[in-house]
Each structure stands twice: as structure tokens, then as C-alpha cells.
Design a protein around this nucleic acid. Sequence first.
DNA 1: GCGTTGCCGAACAGTATGTTCGAAAACACG
DNA 2: CGTGTTTTCGAACATACTGTTCGGCAACGC
Lengths: 202, 202
Amino acid sequence: MTDLKTDARVQRTRELLLDALVHLLMERGYEKLTIQNLLDRARVGRSTFYAHFQSKDELLACSIDRLRIGLTAQWRSAVHANSDRTEPLTFTLPFFRHLDSHRRIYHTTIGREHERSVELHMQRMLRELVREDMAQRRVHAPADALDLATRYVVGTLWAVVMWWMDGNKSLPPEEVNRIFQRMTFPGLEAIIGAESGCAGRL
Amino acid sequence: MTDLKTDARVQRTRELLLDALVHLLMERGYEKLTIQNLLDRARVGRSTFYAHFQSKDELLACSIDRLRIGLTAQWRSAVHANSDRTEPLTFTLPFFRHLDSHRRIYHTTIGREHERSVELHMQRMLRELVREDMAQRRVHAPADALDLATRYVVGTLWAVVMWWMDGNKSLPPEEVNRIFQRMTFPGLEAIIGAESGCAGRL
DNA sequence: GCGTTGCCGAACAGTATGTTCGAAAACACG
DNA sequence: CGTGTTTTCGAACATACTGTTCGGCAACGC
């Protein structure tokens, strides 16, 4: 009885495929990227791929999930450092930093004509992070309002991301984060009576 | 020398295909909709399709463009009626009304798991409308800020759309539009010094 | 070592795309 | 009408990608 998680072969295959995905995302983008490309790049057999992932899309989901876990870790440590009652949405700064240091990937997968999947999965991830943030800060409001607020934040966040990644603007992540907060917080208060205090006024 | 625009055959074919698209969008969504389906539904030959459109995607683009033209017309007449200096983003109400009266389509093409193309084209259209609105109201600000503002508005607008269309919420379009304006205008002022006057405070 | 598990890779069926071509139908125009 | 032009049809074809199967081989844990 071998443990799936400790079998070196399994880990190797998964990492080979995940790495191949990242490299091919830069080269070709997601949509026009075939499974055969992945197999060739990762030097993995066809049936092996399907033993691990149901589809190209699931591989991508897996890759984004990796990112989510990494971001969450940074987030938690940052919150821990600043002790209690920090400003809302503290995960955005690590997020912008991540984008900044992986521009090559996101330049070919975000805002491009026929590229939509990466954005979709990213937004799904962001939605989870926002929900988590609100849950931790115990924002209480009708479920409807919370839902709208979540979508609103992700919408504005993504607008900033597209804008930032578009014209090769070389603003530092910290600056971008400030812009994001300045334009997002007022509208957020309009939806849920966020008692975000000083953060709202900046 | 026959005129392409007046040949009854080409008009017939184009309309058959566009209508087929709309009906099939409701039934199957966009992504899992084959060209063969369109041909069968529209009773049009395969080579005929490719004589008119390069791809499924171009057909969709054409359909969205139809919508854009219709919205723009409603928009202009509304602006004309209210004479000068109306509130900003007046096209959103017609837009929400359109969504409301075509729920069946958008229910299967917006926010669904593997549906991305319709959203993509819609957002592109909205971006154009927002740009046009700003140009007409002669908002002056750095090109950078205008670009960010445009993306911001589309981002929040789309957040509202997803939220509205999601849980079968049966709010009237007018109400949704008010919610949209209330949460969007403050942030918009933060980007460009919008002299939107009373509209900003509602 | 030994039983178990994962991997390979070729072959295969299935599905969709986009092109080609000759014949038939619909058209504009005189 | 009649004539030359344009569009349509539909089958056939080439191409490409997906997802599955299976027997032999290699790597693993114990």
C-alpha cells in the first residue's frame, strides 16, 4: 500500500506537467496550447497525463490553486505581523507583487484577444480570497450585499490588473495597490456599511 | 455589377445564421455549440457559412455588434430627449433593460463554467460605449487615467451584471442601474476629477 | 527481492474545423 | 423574358486535437 503523495514518480510527473504549463503559457498562451505540446515539453506519455488530470483546464486550475496557497501564506504572515485590525483586503499587495515578478506569463495570458481561461481562473481565486477576507473581518451584511461586494472588488481589482499589465506600465506594486484601494474603498462602503475606518479615507 | 448589400440571398443567409446563433446560445451556450449545429438550424450549406464568416467567433462578434448599434440608438435618443448635461453613463439603463428582456440567453452564456466568449465580446462592447460616453462629455484627464477609468467602469458594471443574472434576482432594471451608479460613481471621481455634479451624490 | 503501482507509446475512435469543386438556383439588368 | 453573374448547396477531403485502451516495461515501497 503505497501512499500516493509520497511516490516520487507521481510528484515528478505532476511537477513536470505544471512546469511545462507555465513555460508554454509564456510562449503560446493558454488557448492555442495543445495537450501534445505539454507532453512533448514535459516528456510525459499521453496516457500518463490523463492519469493525473482530466483536461488541460484541470491542469490550469491546479496551477492557479498553487498560486492561491502561496498568496494565502504570505497574507497570513502579513496579518500576523501587523497584529489586529489591519486594513481590509491585505492580500492584494502580495498579489500585485506576484504579477509584477511574472509579467512574462501574464503578458501573454491576460487581456489578449483569445485568452480567457487564465483570467477566469484567476478571478475565481480572487473571489475566494475576497470572501475569506470579509469572513475574517466579520463584515455582516445581507448575503446578497456580500455577494455583490465580492464581485465588485474582484471587478475593480481586475480592471487595475488589466490596466497595469497592458501598456507595459512599470509602476511599482505598492503604487498600484494604493490606486486600487483609493478607487475601490468608497464604492465598497456604499454597498456594505464597511466600518473600515481610516483605511476608507486613506 | 450587383451590390453586395442589396442581394436578397446574402441578407437572408446572414440573418438565418445570426438568428440560429441566438437560438442555439439559449439551448447550448456558446462554447459547446458547433458550426454544424448552426448549419442545421439555419439550413445553410457549410461552404456558404465560410463565405460569410471566418469563424464561429466572427459570427458572435457580428451579433454583438448588432446589439451595440441598437443600444447606441436608444442611447442617442434618450440623450436627445433630456437635452443637455445629463448624468454620465446613460447607456447603462438601456443595457440593463436589454439583459432583463433576454434573460434566457444570458442565463446560459454569462457566469457559466465554460462560457467565456460572450462575456469577452460584451465587455469589449461596453468598453467602447464607455469610451464614447467620456469622449462626448469631454472629460479631460491623462490618457492613462481615462483608460483606467474605462476599465474600472466596465469592471463594476460587469460585477453588477453577474450578480444580477446569477441568483435569478428579479430586480427591475431601473433599481439595478441605481445600485450600479451608487457604487461606481464615487470611485470614478477618485480616478478622474469627474465634475459629474449632482449625479455623483445621487 | 517482490508485489504493487505508475509510466510509456502506439494505435484507435470520435469529433470538429476549414477547404474545394461542380452543378443548380437566385439574382440584376437590359 | 433572356443572359451573364453571383450565391448557394452538399459531399468529399485534408487536417488537427481529444480522450481511451492495452501490453510491456520501469520504478517504487516495504
